[in-house]
Amino acid sequence: MSLAKRIIPCLDVMNGQTVKGTNFINLRLAGDPVELGKRYSEENADELVFLDITASHEGRKTFTDMVQRVAAEISIPFTVGGGINELGDVERMLNAGADKVSINSAAIRNPELIGQIASHFGSQVCVVAIDAHLENNEWVCYLNGGRLKTEYRLFQWAKEASERGAGEILFTSMNHDGVKKGFANDALAILSETLPIPVIASGGAGCKEDFRDTFKQGKSDAALAASVFHYGEISIKELKTYLKQEGINVRL
C-alpha cells in the first residue's frame, strides 16, 4: 500500500495573524498565516489546518479573506476550523477556497450538521474534531476548547460521527496536549482499528519519535502538531526523512 502518512501543521489565527511565534529565520512575515503556510508547503507538509480563534464578527471577515489568500497562493489541501456552526458557515469557507472544514462543538450540539455537510458537499469535506480527556478510564468529550464537559464518550461519539457522514476524525487528547511526551496512541489505535474513516492524531508531539510512534503504535493516518513546527523545534523536511528511515511511507 502506497498511501502516505500525512504530516499536518496547525496554525491558530487571531485577527488575521498566527498566534504562536516562530523561530523561522529569513521569514519576513512570520505572523502572516499565508506566508507561514507557504513555508510549510515548501517543506513538504501534506496538508494545513487553519483554526480561527477570533471571537469578533470583524475577525471572522478577516479570516475569510485569509482563506481566500491561502487558496490563491498554496497548492496543497487545507482545512479550516473555528466558528463553523451551520451549513452557511461551511459554504462560506468552501467558497473562499477551503478544501475541508473541521467542526467540533457544533457537531456535538447539533449532530445533524455532520449529515447536512456530507450530503451537500460530500463526506470528504467534513472533519469532525473531538477534544477528549481521560478520566477514570473513560475518554470524556469536551466542548468550547476544553472548557465544557459533556455526556459524550470518545469511541461512541467518533463512531456516531462516522456513521453520520464524517470524512475524518481529528482526535485531540487533552491529557497529552501541550505536554510534548507523545500522542495518545492507545486510544488512537482503537479509533483507527474500529472506524472506516481516517484518523488524525493531535496533541502531544514533542520529538520525531512521537510521530513514528503514533503512526506505528497509534495506527494514525495523519499527525497534526503546532508548536514543535512553529518554534522550529522540528523541521518537517527532517521529520519526514526520519520517518522514511523508520520504514514509514511518507511523501518526500
Binding site: 500500500m1 502516505a4 470524512g167 475524518e168 482499528e193 472506524l195 472506516p196 481516517p198 495506527k219 493516518d221
Partner: peptide, 16 residues
Amino acid sequence: TPEKQEQKIPHMGWDT
C-alpha cells in the same frame, strides 16, 4: 470495496 479494516474509504491523501 475494502478488503481489510485499514483500507479506509475514501482513498484520501498523497499516493503515487
